[in-house]
Structure formats: C-alpha cells, structure tokens
Computed example of a mutant assay.
Amino acid sequence: MSVVGRRGGVSGHNTYRAVTVWLALLLFCALPGCAALDRDAHADALAEPAHLHRQLVDAGGFVLTAFARISQPGKPLRVYIEGDGVAWLSRTMPSLDPTPREATGLALAANDPTPNVVYLARPCQFTPMAMNPRCGIPYWTGKRFAAEVIESINDALSRFAALTPGQPIELVGYSGGGAVAVLIAARRTDVVSIRTVAGNLDDEFVNRLHGVSPMPESENAINFASRVASIAQVHFSGAEDDVVPPSVAQRFVNATGTRCAQALTVPGFSHDSDWSRRWPALLEIAPTCAPTTLGR
C-alpha cells in the first residue's frame, strides 16, 4: 500500500511513462497465471463468504464502491475504510487506477463476525472510471485526504447509518483509511470508537520520513486529534512496518491524550502483512476510555 505523497498532477512525460507501464501490465495479463491481478474478482472472493454484498453509492460527487452486511439493524454499525491502494507505481510515477490489489481493509471486514459490517472503498477504487468523471490522479495522490474526499465518504457512511437508525458507529481504517476514519469521526457525533491498522495518522510526518512532498490540499489527521480525544480508540502498528512505523501511532496518541487512546505494536508484522489473519484476535482488544478524574 502506498502512503507517501506527491503534489497533485503529473507532467505529460510522466503520463506517457505511466501509460507505457499500464500497457505493459495489460500485455502481461495475457499470460497464464494473471488471474491474481483481477482486483475486482479478488474483492468479490473475499466478500462473498462473509455475505458482504457489493453496492455503488453516489456520494458527494464520487460514486463509491461498498460491500455491506446489515443483518441486525438494532445493533451497532462497524464501518471499514480501505487504504490508499495502488496510488503510485514508483516514487515518481502515479498509478492510473488506485484500486488495491490485496484490499486489506476488505479482508479485515470479511473476518469480522459482527452482524452489521460495511466496507467503503476510497474514491476511484473499484468503481469504473466512466462512472466517476471527477476522478483523476490528484484524488489518490496529493488530494487523497482533501475535504471533498472526506465529505463524500462521510456521506456514504450516513446512507448506511440510516439502515441502523440510532445505533452507534464504530470505525476501522487501514493505512490511509485510518486517517479517513479520524477525519470522519471529527465531523460526526455518533462515532463511539476508532480502530486503525498501520494507520497514516500524520501524513506530514510520514512524508518527511520518506523524503517526499507534503500534501497541502489534504487534511492531516493529527491536526484533528483534539476533536476525537473523547472517542475510544486503538491504533495497531506492525513492529516491522517501515512504511508507517509505530512512532506514527504514538505521535497521534500523544496529541490525542491517553485517556481514550492507546497505541499497540504487533510483533513480527509489517505494513503489508496478513493483518486479516490476526484480526479476530485484535478485535478482542476493545477501545475504552479511562474514567475521568474526580473534579476534572
């Protein structure tokens, strides 16, 4: 999963190079064994055994792809938000399609046994580009956390929340989806918990760490830490993650305060490890807030 950013837009030369690489990938897919590159089929294979049904949601200028299972409307709604996907082909060459190959956020959702589960892909992932005229490279590079992106995902979330009226919402975000979860929670009053997995909770710090350009057109989750400080949250990081290292989650917890937030490091895991395998056990670690001190 790519989490490092560049400024929106690419030169004509870079566009030509990106198209060349994309054509090479298409030619490669003519060879035997390329079925693994069918990202839509992979997503459907993850979702079907979990009874997560694919839907398209027209939300705030983007048509988002979702997978949902609402079986007990009188219980809480847990919403998973995907990572950045295939945002970059290299440090300098953006992808032409950000749809994730592994769909880690969807794999987490598929391993969640709770009755009401929704997975939200990020703008321009999975949905055909023809249905998304607004889509362009900036929306999965420098503007991937822009206000209009967050508002679109929040609007889609509200559509599903209406199917579980009055119930609390629990957010889970993988990688860049962790930032989106925080930014959505800062806009709502019905979110009771946040879980992030390898979450990019401070994109300015992460971009400096990797020596890439800042993203001035995006919102940075850590700047909203005080607005989510009263929401119970757990931020999981892999001890071997050199993309979004554990220090990122700790910086966010330091900014939020430790009454409701904790950062936990999982030994032996990297950014792209099989988090879904460990997810049922990690879900047992419930986000909680410590009691407030009397008189404060």
Rank of each mutant, 00 (worst) to 15 (best):
L64F: 08
A281V: 07
G105Q: 03
I137K: 08
H42F: 12
C124D: 06
E204V: 11
G74M: 03
G33D: 04
A103Q: 14
V197F: 15
A229Q: 14
V149Q: 08
Q125D: 03
T114Q: 14
N220F: 00
E240P: 00
N116E: 05
G173Q: 04
R144S: 13
T292E: 15
T265P: 02
L23D: 04
A286N: 12
S276F: 13
R54M: 02
I81T: 02
R277Q: 13
L157Q: 09
V57E: 11
Y119L: 05
C124F: 09
L209K: 03
D40C: 06
R227L: 13
D272Y: 02
N116W: 05
F160K: 10
G176D: 09
R78M: 11
G9H: 08
M215H: 01
A41G: 08
I194T: 05
A103G: 04
S158K: 14
L46R: 04
M215F: 00
R101M: 15
G142L: 06
G211Q: 06
D272H: 06
S276M: 03
A43P: 01
R159S: 12
G142E: 04
A47H: 02
N223E: 13
G295W: 11
V86A: 14
L26I: 09
P113Q: 08
G199P: 02
V212H: 01
V63Q: 14
S193L: 05
N116M: 09
T196V: 09
A221G: 03
L283E: 13
I150D: 01
T114W: 07
S90E: 04
A59D: 04
T196F: 06
F145I: 00
A35P: 00
G257D: 11
E217M: 03
K143L: 12
V234W: 08
I81S: 02
V192T: 15
A185S: 12
V243P: 00
T141L: 07
G211D: 02
L264Q: 13
L163N: 11
I194G: 04
H271E: 07
